[in-house]
Structure formats: structure tokens, C-alpha cells
Design a protein around this nucleic acid. Structure first.
Lengths: 209, 209, 209, 209
DNA sequence: GATGAATGAGTCTTCATTCAT
DNA sequence: TATGAATGAAGACTCATTCAT
């Protein structure tokens, strides 16, 4: 297997000039659209090829098979998410502020990639992943970013001293379910408007006093 | 088609007398095992029939098709969940206490049905559900129970006056992600031990003071 | 994999009553026709199914895949060949007579199965056979029958004391190439008429005196 | 299309100067290696191009398609075989001696080209050859050399007066099957050591007296 | 001339569903 | 009523061949 599938990020820069977008990128873009709409199993390789304006065989030049394409898409999305969150939270100080920015970045990313993340997080379960834990680790790799924030805050006495694994999962749960709720509403409201409520829920809980 | 349902606990009681368990029940039990292990798409009707100790054709006597079987299983599980949560939370007083019991019931149910709920909540997305909203309503029907609790608490001035939809989704997110975390650990700990932390997170948030 | 593919030979007896022929047998008969005409690679599973008057899926109920079908066909033909040769040569005495009957049986078999044996002997080479030697052993298993004959003759002082492996391959070469020659002629002559010449070639060679 | 052929020995002489080997020759050499190892159907044009150190498109500059490449390779090998046998048998006198040299030349050629000849002789069957007879004629064209030898011997009263077609096929059978036997042994012995036995088999047969 | 990315016709294989027994 | 052999539509994947550079 040649390593056509390993490319650098330059091609993103020129997306305005359609002819300059690398074939690999075209496929990933089409794959995201199709997988997002139909989920893994109902997505046809033909449909992805058609949407990418490429022949079916071309898909297979770049990705061993449908599953590898799916996982590559997921991997690269997670990587993108992580790198966005990292760079954003790097820009600010203070545990609370950092966590806020962190959450905001997550939500912005999910807002942009809409349904993809549901598939990202759950559908892969159904796809035979030889090492299930490894898979999950990759998908959930981004929780470390939350964990780091939280640890920092705990050490500074801003956050409670709770298991950071517990907290990052709990916070992620809040984030994801609010994204799901928003998705279900068909853009009736802007999920970013929910941020204050989300922060309040996470920081102070629901009880009065 | 007869309508013996999962809730109808009678047939469970006589499981020692194998011949008394209704065929429909046998199929649903087998289906839960198989769907839980492989997910919807990788589950074979043959496997379900084999596990149920029945002929494949029999499955189709009781359920129109694989999808209907899957949805029936889900419907009945959700119904069972709702009825359990309802009866448990009916036993106690006070908004806080009620919400706690509510959450505990959820977690106990998920603990028992393990992987099924992941499929329940997310895989269905991949299955063509003509009316997507209707589908979701059914699956998420149980959020009303949370909503009721919360509304009651809000009115009594125990909980903040926030949108109950927002709160129920947020709480559900916390619950589900903690279940996922627990599932991933391969029973290294008892998820029920996490309850105090979960309550504290939901009621008071993570911030000190 | 269930073992539908293991059946006994009874179904052969009733081939006149078409409806009594087992599905497995029907597939093998169709496969022989198609493989004989087109060779392994150009034969379509669809064509075999159509010729057998069965659905394509049925082929796969009985044989794991096209290759297994091909190999099963070959195995069973070799088995049939061996058993015919054995029973025929068992009926007569004397090394020379036995060898003659042996050769005659081979040729009759090849006459009946025409092109199949070319495929049997050579095309399989092209099909990935994990243990190549094992494959060959199976295909050429029948040479032992010749070897036995020859050894007996050598011990009785009728045949020269030459390596029996060498002799059986040489004799088989004579047989097969005469079959090929006959096949090429499109039934212009009866290959059985060549038997005297073949015997003379093998027993006495081509030199005068 | 130029017509540098394998026979044209000039380019072989300068193999040390890699750049002097014609592209066509490079392709044929690579094709022989690949076809010999995998057979026609499992050989990939990519693999041949890679082995030849050329681009895939270049293959198609020199050969219309894979099949033509295969046939050209075979044609040129047969031509080479014929020319070697002819020149060798031209060097000696006497029907017996000539036939011996003939056989020796064959075996030497096959020894050098190992597995290729199996493919040469049989796999082509599987390739749609519009005029099957024409194909065979070309492949088996070399039998005329044996036929000539035999006819000469028959007329001189050295060999029996049998159909020369019958004899050449029979002798070829002996030769080929001994080559196969040798090939199967993985060079455990030198096939040229078998020559005396082969001569004896062909000239005198297996019977004593 | 040489190249190799792109192509899509061609096939195998799967598995939910049916229906004769 | 229960069965499971038969089915065939559907879809993943391959690879010889083309053609723009």
C-alpha cells in the first residue's frame, strides 16, 4: 500500500480554487456529508464518489476500504477538534476562563459538524474495531484537554477536588446532550446562546443556595 | 398480533417452566442479547433465531421485519424504564429526593441493560426512521419524567428557574456519560458508587464556594 | 458453517427423476459444465446458479465461495476417478493386465469429463492454494494407483526396476497428452481406439528391435 | 509498433549497460517473472510495471493489453525454444541421436524457464482465444520438430511406423510430466540426470524382454 | 516518450425476507 | 403454527485500461 493517504494540510488553504483541492480532501469532504446524512451503514461508497465528483475506484486509491475511510474521517475530525480547542484555550488565563473557552470551542466545532459527531461518538461502536479500547481512546482523546483544565482548577482551589475523569465525562455529557437537543430543534435557536446556562449548570449546579 | 409486552412481568416469573415463556418473549430476550453484542446492522436474524431456539420464519410471525423487532425491543425497554422510574420516584417525597431516586433508577436500569442503551440512544439514527422526530420523541420520552421532577423543584424554589428541557438533557448527559465511562472500565467499579458524586455535580456544580 | 456440504452419494442413483437430485448435486453438475467450458476465472457464479436452475444465494448455502466450490468439484472428481480405477483394476490379474485396465479406466474417465481434467490438473495452480504441496498431493493422489501396479510388476520381474515415481509420472504424461490430442481433434476419432498404440508405447517404446 | 524480439539476442549481450536493454525487453523479462509466479489472472499489470521499473502506461505503449503481453511472451518463448531445439538437433546425426538431443534441448529449456511452461501450456486455455485451434497450433508448433525426427527415424527403420502425431504427443507427455515432477521436488535433484531413464522409457518401454 | 492518477465495468458475496411443506 | 431452504437485490471492492500532463 502506497501512502497516498498521508498528506499534509496545505491543500486546505486553497479551497476557494476548487481545482486545487487535493483528491484526498475532496473525498473526505464528500464522505463527511454522506456519512453525516446517512450514517455509516447506509452510506454508499458510490454516493461518496458521486458527491466528490470522482470515480468509485479513486476512493479506493486513497482509502483501503469504506471502514478505513470512515475512521480516517473521524480521526482527522478529532485531531482538528483537539487542535482548535488547544489553540483557543491557550489564548486565555484562569481555570474558569479556560474551561469556558474549552467548552465554547467544543460547541462551536459540533455546531459546525452537526450530525457527524453523533456518528463519531456512537456509531463506531458498531463497526468492528479490533482493539475497542484503543478506538475509544482515540475518539475520546480530547477529554484529556478537559481533564487538564480541571486539574489545574482543582490545584488552584477553584474547582472541587473530584476525580478528573469523572468530571470530564460529566461535562462532555452536558455538552453533547445540549448539542443533540439543539440538533433536534432544526436550528430553531443558536446553541451558542445556551452557553451561559451551560456554564452555570457546570459551575454551580441546579440547586438554589 | 398479540400484544404481550416486556412490562407484563408474568411470563418472567415462570421462566423455570420453559414452555410457558411466550415465543414473543423468547425472541425479544434473544434479540436484546444479540443486538447488544453486535449492534443493529451486524446482528443477523439467524443469530437471534438460533439464540431463541426458534426457526427463522418464526421471528417473522411475531415481527414484521428486523427493524420492527429492533424498535419493538427498544420501545418496550423504554416503557419498562419509564415505568420503573415512575414507580420508584412515586415512593418518595421532596424534589431533591425525587430527582435522586429518578437518577438512581436510570442508572440501575442502564447497569442492568448495559450496552443496549448505547444502541437504544444512538444507533437508531442510522436506521431509516420515517418520522425522525417521532422516533426521538419515543426514545427520549422518558425525559419528561426528569422534566416533571425539575419543574416541581423549580416551583418549590429548590431548583433554579431554568428551562426544564435544557436541564433534563443536561442531566441525562451526565448520567449517560457516566454510564459510558463505567461500561468502558469493564466493571472495575460499581457505578452506583458514583451516585454521590453525580448528585453533587448536578446539584452544586464543580466550583467551590 | 453447517455441514450441508457433506452429503452421501445416494442422490446420484435417482438422477432420472430430476426433482430427487439433491441441490448440492445440482450445483456440482452445473459447476462442472460451466468450469469446463470457461475455466475457473471466467466462470461466473451467476452462470452456475442459472445452469443449476437455482438462485445465486443457494450456491453460497452449500459452498463457502467460488473457490471452495471449485475445489470440492475437483476433489470429488479425483475421488471418483480413484474409486473407478481401483474397482476396475481389482477385477483382473497380472501386472500387465492390471496396468492396461488402469490406463483404460483413466482414459475412459477423462473421455467422459473432457476438458475438466485440464482445469483439474493445471488451472488450480493459479488459484492460491495455501499449501501447494498438499494441493498437488490431492490432485495427483491417483498416481499411487499407477505406482502400485508398477511396483507389483517390477517385483514379479515383468517391468524394469525403475523408480516407480518416475514411471507413474511418465505414463500419466503419455495418457494425458493423448487425451489432449484427442480433445483437440473435436471427437474426430475415439480415443479408446488409441489404447493399443498407447500400451505398445508404454510397454515396448518406439525403437525397433 | 517496433518488433524487437526475444530471439534478437543482441540486447542480452549488453545487459551490464542497463540503459541499453530495450524497454520492450525489460517488460518481457518482468512479465515472465510475474506470470511465472502468479499465473495470468493473479498477475497485476502494476506488478509487472513495478518489476520492470517502468510506469504502467509504458506497458501499454508496447503491448496492446495484458493478454497480448502474455501471448507475446509465450510466442517468443516458443520461438526461442524451437530455434534452440532446431540448432541443437542440427548439430548431430542419426535419428536416435537427434531425438535424444531434441529431448535434451526441451528439458534444458524447461529447466531454465521453470514454471513458465506450465502456464504456457495450460493456462492459456482459460484466456479467451478467439481461434482456439490457431492458439494451440502456435503453442504446440514445436511438436513438428519431434514429428520430423520421428518420421526420419521411421523411414530409416529405426523407429516403429506409428502415427507421428501420436508419438510426438506421447513423447512430449513424458517430457512434460517429468519436468512437472522435478519442479514439484524443489530442485532436490537435477532433471538432466533423469535423461537416461527418459530415453530408455521412450525407446524401449517398461517391459522386460 | 513516459507516467501514474483516475476510472467504472464487472463480480463476488451477504443476508433479510419469503413460502412450500 | 413452525420451519429453514431458497432467493436475489444490494453493495463492496478489484484492476485492466485510459489519457492529461
Amino acid at each position: 500500500m502506497t501512502d497516498w493517504s498521508v498528506r499534509n494540510g496545505e491543500d486546505v488553504e486553497r479551497m476557494s480554487d476548487n481545482s486545487k483541492i487535493s483528491t484526498r480532501k475532496k473525498i473526505l469532504v464528500a464522505a463527511e456529508e454522506v456519512f453525516s446524512e446517512y450514517g455509516f451503514h447506509k452510506s454508499l461508497v458510490d454516493a461518496i464518489a458521486a458527491k466528490a465528483g470522482l470515480g468509485k475506484g479513486t476512493i479506493y486509491r486513497y482509502f483501503e476500504n469504506k471502514e478505513v475511510l470512515f475512521k480516517s474521517l473521524m480521526d482527522e475530525n478529532v485531531e482538528a477538534l483537539v487542535s482548535i480547542v488547544q489553540s483557543e484555550s491557550g489564548k486565555c488565563d484562569g481555570a474558569v476562563e479556560k474551561l469556558k473557552v474549552n467548552i465554547e470551542s467544543y460547541i462551536k466545532f459540533f455546531k459546525q459538524h452537526k450530525r457527524l459527531f453523533v456518528i463519531l461518538l456512537f456509531e463506531e461502536e458498531g463497526i468492528g474495531c479490533k482493539d475497542h479500547n484503543e478506538c475509544w481512546e482515540k475518539r475520546m482523546g480530547h477529554t484529556v484537554l478537559l481533564e487538564e483544565c480541571i486539574k489545574e482548577g482543582s490545584e488552584l482551589g477553584v474547582f472541587k477536588k473530584l476525580d478528573s475523569g469523572f468530571l470530564s465525562y460529566s461535562i462532555l455529557g452536558v455538552i453533547h446532550y445540549n448539542v443533540i437537543k439543539w440538533m433536534r430543534s432544526n436550528d430553531e435557536y443558536d446553541i451558542l446562546d445556551e452557553l451561559p446556562a451551560i456554564y452555570d449548570f457546570i459551575f454551580n449546579g441546579i440547586k438554589i443556595g
